[in-house]
Design a protein around this nucleic acid. Sequence first.
DNA 1: TCGTTTCCTGACCGTATGGTCAGGACATAC
DNA 2: GTATGTCCTGACCATACGGTCAGGAAACGA
Lengths: 217, 217
Amino acid sequence: MDDSAQGSRARAGKRTDIRRANERVILQAAERVFAEAGFGGATMQLIADMAGLPKANLHYYFATKEELYRRVVEDIFQIWLRAADSFDDAPDPATAIGAYIEAKMRISRQHPFGSKVWASEVMHAAPVIQDYLETTLRAWTEGRIKAIQRWIDDGRMAPIDPRHLLYMIWATTQHYADFGHQIETLNAGRPLTDRQWKAATDSVKSIILRGIGLVAG
Amino acid sequence: MDDSAQGSRARAGKRTDIRRANERVILQAAERVFAEAGFGGATMQLIADMAGLPKANLHYYFATKEELYRRVVEDIFQIWLRAADSFDDAPDPATAIGAYIEAKMRISRQHPFGSKVWASEVMHAAPVIQDYLETTLRAWTEGRIKAIQRWIDDGRMAPIDPRHLLYMIWATTQHYADFGHQIETLNAGRPLTDRQWKAATDSVKSIILRGIGLVAG
DNA sequence: TCGTTTCCTGACCGTATGGTCAGGACATAC
DNA sequence: GTATGTCCTGACCATACGGTCAGGAAACGA
């Protein structure tokens, strides 16, 4: 129609496809290796093996280990931010906060490696995403704090400190990813089932919602 | 009196003193470096510099990096366990759980490096303390779950899942250590003051206690 | 078909790291 | 004093790691 030759939307040349596919498989392997070994413990060789590519090929797509790591962290941050939208889709506090908890629990289950990389990055004083913390995250947080404070001022929930409520939600939901190994060990060595994940989500929602003066749905 | 020569309690020979003092300074430096760089990112040279000792001297006291790391993790686990006692010192649920939260918040403030090392260890699938998780931690957890369940059965608190309550307490309190950098960034780049730590502790206690059907003190 | 660009990779290199060791300093016991 | 064990350390080593590079294969455009 408008681009070059044949099908325009999903086709952009075989070369571009190759690049996209390889970057994807590398990033996926890197996410896992960084999560399981930490930045310092991860090796390009290990990532290459897990991606099924020669090490030199990694350096063709990502010049340095730092660059690859940065991409992994940035990708996670995007997922994290997208989930935050569920906060704004409902003006009712119980629905908004409940949906946010559910979204974050879902991410903990679907992206445990990413969550661990993020945790590791922050624990090491955020060497590569400090600017995101100071801009995007800070802005998002302040906005949400204001929204919650408004609910409190309107008498729609208990007068708790919104900031610490957010920290509690982050901490609790991410705990199921970051400390998943410990939780699994305390679950007879077995990963949580669908049912157990639902129970965990319900428990978290129930305690927090009740804790801020809202009844769990 | 009973031992060898002079003062017996605080004296056990200068040699023993030297050993104790050096081990202490090494462990302290190691805890910090492991926390800030991760196991893989930490180097014996860095730990030695921070301890003010030649690298070879570290290897005199701790044969390998793994051995030094293991000692750091084990020491943290002990601190962690000692705090858990506050759970049993009061039979009243509100007091017990409130005291436990306070103890854990205090540890987060006093041992942020240790908390990070612990988190990192668990995130990496607990390569060195898996046995502790399966024995000591599991036993402690099951015991506490039973105690909480008893309170619930007696109608003294809301019928929540005790296991997830414990996870929430762990997650939330440790968050203030493990994600301290993020919290500091969201606090205008400044570490929390005494007053802010108290506010955080009160918020956590308040939400959780109310969340499980108990009123915050 | 031919030139150009992208993609691929085995072999290689410099460096940093964990760990060793021989030899010396120092404290202690007799 | 002297023998013995503890403590200390500069110099050294083998290895593993991140990264480079030359040269070739494959895709593409005309």
